[in-house]
């Protein structure tokens, strides 16, 4: 019996259903860390770039990709790590950015800080710390609604 290989487009769709382990409202595709998907003969090769070099989620992400692909019947999978070009928040999808904000995380801005509070949209915001609960986030607060919130660092 000949089983047809799933298309690369189909695989991208599957990957877009694999949530980021730390911020489950966005997918790995939204995060911009899936750099390439291609078939090498009968082996599916997925190229992944790390967000931060020490991010503990990296190994979980690889495991989640493997589980998802195995779940879709992929037998031969090879995960490649690519460091260059280094990951940038410019690769976050538009869908991902708006999902982050709805979730309460201000999306990255080139100005280096959030343009508004993700809760009440006030622009009167202050930085608490350049670092936060995960390597990709910083802590900010809103001077109007007084809520603290996470800001997705722009790198």
């Amino acid at each position: 019996m000949v089983v047809e290989k799933p298309t690369v487009t189909q695989i991208w769709k599957w990957l877009d259903n694999v949530p980021d382990p730390e911020i489950p409202v966005i997918s790995l595709v939204d995060l911009g860390i899936i750099r390439d998907v291609q078939w090498q003969g009968d082996t599916l090769e997925i190229t992944v770039t790390p967000t931060y070099s020490g991010c503990p989620a990296t190994s979980i992400i690889n495991l989640d990709i493997e589980l998802a692909m195995t779940g879709h019947g992929i037998k031969n999978l090879s995960l490649k790590r690519q460091l260059s070009p280094a990951w940038t928040t410019d690769w976050l999808s538009e869908k991902g950015r708006s999902k982050l904000e709805t979730y309460g995380i201000a999306p990255p801005q080139t100005a280096g800080g959030p343009d508004r509070c993700p809760h009440c949209q006030s622009t009167d915001v202050q930085r608490i710390s350049q670092f936060g609960s995960t390597p990709c986030k910083a802590q900010w607060r809103c001077a109007d609604c007084l809520e603290p919130f996470d800001y997705f660092k722009c790198i």
């Binding site: 070099s53 020490g54 390597p135």
Partner: peptide
């Protein structure tokens, strides 16, 4: 977080 970056490197 800085320690984590450095260990990653």
């Amino acid at each position: 977080n800085i320690a984590l970056d450095l260990i990653g490197q």
